[in-house]
């Protein structure tokens, strides 16, 4: 009983900031509340949910959000691991480089997105400057539905790789050095050391980094809003951008809540899959 009492403040806080808004959204998703109802709430049963299931744009955006999240997080893990391994070695100037490597992460997203919008500019941006100096035709990075999403991934990888690198670096420092010494005495090569010692022991950190980053990437909003505004042809639009459009532009709060909840349910599924995968990986190990 006393344990419950001690936990009460934390539980109340969770209820207030997490459960209550969620319930509020669930209720709102069963109402029509939009500019067409004069912002009055009118109960409409499952109408919003039926619309969601049939809404091609929701599913298109869900696919695009998933593609963005998976590709960028995968790239960030690979690049982050490489950087972490590098920064873990002892070399001159490491301290300076360690702080410099964090810079992209410290930059506000809107600022860096504006920067990338300029870098990708066709034809005046620096990237197209390089393309032109190679004698090639400029590339409309942000104006082509096939390229624009790649551009969003590149910007995201640039921005958040330092975060992954930092988490993994912390993990590397937890691995005792004598493990490697013993391994070297037994005649193991550094490459084998990476595969047999580093990666297995780093797994929990990789998992945490992936979980954090996936949760963030699936809710991506600011980067896309500034870099492409969701275009061209909505090819970079994420679910968060769509929910925002419904609420703040179309003043359709009932449907916006439904989109947000739909996104939340998809996230939940994703997290469950990840946890399951991890449990299986542990059993297998």
């Amino acid at each position: 009983m006393s344990s419950l009492l001690l936990m009460a403040p934390a539980l109340l806080l969770l209820l207030a900031v997490f459960v209550w808004p969620l319930l509020d959204y669930a209720w709102l998703s069963l109402q029509a509340q939009s500019v067409f109802t004069g912002l009055e709430t009118v109960p409409v049963g499952a109408a919003n949910w039926q619309r969601l299931l049939a809404d091609g744009r929701f599913w298109q955006d869900a696919g695009q959000t998933l593609r963005f999240a998976l590709v960028s997080v995968a790239l960030e893990l690979v690049a982050g691991l490489a950087i972490a391994l590098l920064l873990h070695q002892r070399w001159r100037g490491r301290g300076t480089v360690r702080s410099l490597a964090l810079l992209p992460w410290a930059l506000p997203t809107t600022v860096m997105a504006l920067g990338w919008r300029w870098i990708f500019n066709d034809p005046h941006g620096p990237l197209n400057g390089v393309v032109q100096s190679l004698g090639l035709a400029t590339v409309p990075f942000l104006a082509s539905p096939d390229l624009a999403w790649v551009a969003t991934v590149v910007a995201d990888v640039w921005k958040t790789t330092p975060f992954v690198a930092l988490l993994l670096l912390a993990g590397l420092q937890m691995i005792p050095a004598d493990l490697y010494e013993a391994f070297a005495l037994e005649g193991g090569t550094p490459w084998q050391g990476l595969r047999r010692i580093t990666l297995p022991l780093l797994r929990p950190y990789i998992f945490i980094a992936a979980l954090f980053r996936l949760a963030q990437a699936l809710g991506v909003f600011d980067l896309i809003a500034v870099l492409t505004g969701g275009g061209p042809a909505s090819s970079t639009e994420s679910l968060a951008v769509y929910a925002y459009l419904n609420a703040m532009r179309f003043l359709d709060f009932g449907y916006s809540a439904t989109v947000m909840l739909g996104m939340f349910l998809l996230l939940l599924l994703g997290a469950a899959a990840l946890l399951l995968w991890r449990r299986q990986a542990e059993v297998g190990a």
């Binding site: 067409f36 104006a143 061209p232 042809a233 909505s234 179309f250 003043l251 359709d252």
Partner: peptide, 21 residues
């Protein structure tokens, strides 16, 4: 009152056409 959404519907189709689809 639904102008923003009408405009959004139009923009999506026009944007696709302009970007070659």
């Amino acid at each position: 009152p639904g102008y923003a959404q009408l405009s959004d519907i139009l923009q999506r189709q026009l944007s696709a056409l302009i970007s070659g689809r």
